[in-house]
Amino acid sequence: MCGQIPVVCFPAVLLPCVISNTYHIDISRPDTVTATEPFNREVVGWSIKPRMTADIVTDALTMAWFRRRPEPGALHHSDRGSQYASDDFQRKLVQYDMRCSMSRKGNCWDTAPTESFFNSLKNERVHATRYRTHQEAMADLFEYIEVFYNRSRRHSSLGFVSPVQFLQDWMKAQQTKDAAA
Rank of each mutant, 00 (worst) to 15 (best):
F160C: 06
R29D: 10
P30I: 05
Q4P: 14
R125G: 00
H127E: 05
N123T: 08
A137L: 11
Y149F: 14
S152F: 13
D87S: 08
L158Y: 06
Y149D: 09
S78R: 01
R69M: 14
P70I: 03
R91T: 08
P16G: 11
T22A: 13
S116L: 07
V164T: 05
G159N: 11
S103T: 05
Y84G: 00
N40W: 13
V94I: 15
V44C: 07
R67G: 12
F160L: 08
F89C: 04
F160G: 02
L93S: 02
S162E: 00
A12M: 09
C2S: 12
Q90W: 03
C9D: 13
T34C: 13
E42G: 10
D31C: 14
G159S: 09
F10D: 00
S120R: 07
W46Q: 03
K177S: 07
R51I: 06
A128G: 04
W65H: 10
P38W: 15
A60C: 11
K92H: 06
E42A: 15
V13D: 01
F39D: 04
G81N: 11
G81R: 10
N21G: 08
Q165I: 04
Y84R: 01
Y131R: 00
S156I: 12
G159A: 10
E37P: 00
P11C: 03
N123F: 01
R67Q: 14
W65P: 01
N107Y: 09
M98P: 00
D55G: 13
Y149E: 11
G81D: 10
Q165C: 01
A54Y: 14
L141Q: 07
L167V: 00
H127N: 07
T114M: 10
Y23P: 08
A74N: 07
I56M: 10
T34S: 12
A64W: 02
P50V: 04
D88E: 11
V43D: 04
Y144I: 06
A173S: 09
P113T: 03
N21K: 04
P113N: 03
G106Y: 07
H134M: 12
P30K: 13
D178M: 07
R130D: 05
H134D: 12
I27C: 09
S82I: 12
E115K: 10
S156P: 08
